[in-house]
């Protein structure tokens, strides 16, 4: 699953996660070397992104790759045809890896059909965001001591699960790591088939604390994906009261995570973001090493080094 294309974490195994996180630790320690020298990494971003784009670019450059960046500016709606054309072009230019960010689910998988280069999904619509989940596991493993220490811990994924590609990657990743997962959200922000993951659903962050959560993973409320014709929450104030992570939830043994960008005062109160319990800066910091590892894996240089 995590061999050449990084498209989804659905169905990922514990061993695959451990392999990639081991490699990420090597890169984080500065021992990744210039493993991508002579390789060409293309960033094809069909949707606005700051941290993910910058993080991938740094990851590729630190490992010595040549980097080509293509971003579609100005046009809000991207047609798949331009996606395919772009991928075919990058392929012809000799790309070894193509990193795709796109507003539609399945775009990276579609791109992979048109190129021999490794395709890394950097976020597709409400579908998947695999490298976000990997860097989350990396940051969390460091915080608790090791990847194996994650096993048996409880994580509450809080908020707008319905519109979240991060949720669709972190849920299977947390499960593969042996963690117990619960969801905290109103039904309007869960898929109608919220039993799809067979997870307990808790009514508030307070209840998540009572449930014994070791980790509160807050998701961004994605107002841009909601229509004003059929509102999904009554007010930000009510949302923050029940689904926001606040100072009163902080405990010595509870960690708070968020994939960013944060709506301060909505899903997480401002003073929590930079509190001692917060892993948010560590999550951002983990991005470069994890993505270097992913690119090394995807292009096959990691496996060659081992063999």
């Amino acid at each position: 699953m995590l061999s050449r294309n990084f498209l989804t974490l659905e169905g990922v195994s514990r061993e695959e996660l451990r392999d990639i996180l081991d490699l990420a630790r090597v890169h984080a320690a500065g021992h990744g070397g210039l493993s991508l020298v002579g390789r060409t990494v293309c960033l094809a971003f069909f949707e606005a992104s700051t941290r993910t784009a910058v993080s991938f670019e740094l990851a590729a450059r630190r490992a010595g790759a040549d980097v080509i960046s293509i971003s579609e500016k100005g046009s809000a709606v991207q047609k798949g045809e331009s996606l395919i054309d772009t991928v075919v072009t990058l392929d012809a230019l000799g790309a070894d890896a193509i990193v795709v960010r796109h507003p539609s689910v399945g775009a990276a998988r579609l791109a992979a059909r048109y190129t021999d280069a490794a395709v890394v999904n950097a976020g597709d619509g409400c579908g998947q965001h695999p490298t976000q989940a990997l860097l989350d596991l990396h940051a969390l493993s460091n915080a608790v001591g090791s990847f194996d220490e994650l096993c048996g811990r409880k994580v509450a994924v809080v908020g707008d699960v319905l519109h979240s590609r991060v949720a669709r990657s972190v849920i299977p990743a947390f499960q593969a790591a042996g963690m117990e997962v619960a969801l905290v959200a109103p039904e309007t922000l869960l898929p109608s088939e919220n039993g799809a993951w067979e997870l307990p659903i808790l009514p508030s962050v307070d209840d998540a604390i009572d449930w014994g959560a070791d980790v509160l993973y807050a998701l961004r409320l994605q107002n841009e994906r909601m229509t004003s014709e059929s509102p999904r929450i009554p007010s930000v104030a009510e949302y923050a009261r029940y689904y926001g992570v606040a100072r009163r939830h902080l405990r010595d043994d509870v960690l708070v995570m968020h994939p960013g960008p944060v709506n301060r005062g909505v899903e997480i109160s401002g003073d929590v973001v930079l509190s001692d319990s917060s892993l948010i800066p560590a999550q951002v910091a983990a991005g470069v090493a994890v993505r270097s590892a992913v690119l090394a894996y995807a292009t096959g240089v990691a496996q060659k080094a081992v063999a």
Binding site: E10, C126, G127, S192, E193, N194
Partner: peptide, 23 residues
């Protein structure tokens, strides 16, 4: 049309894939 806002059936496959569903 107020309910048919998705592109696939609003079921398990849509939930897992992250595709907007119509119930």
């Amino acid at each position: 049309h107020t309910l048919a806002t998705g592109v696939v059936h609003d079921g398990v496959a849509a939930a897992l894939a992250g595709l907007p569903g119509s119930p």
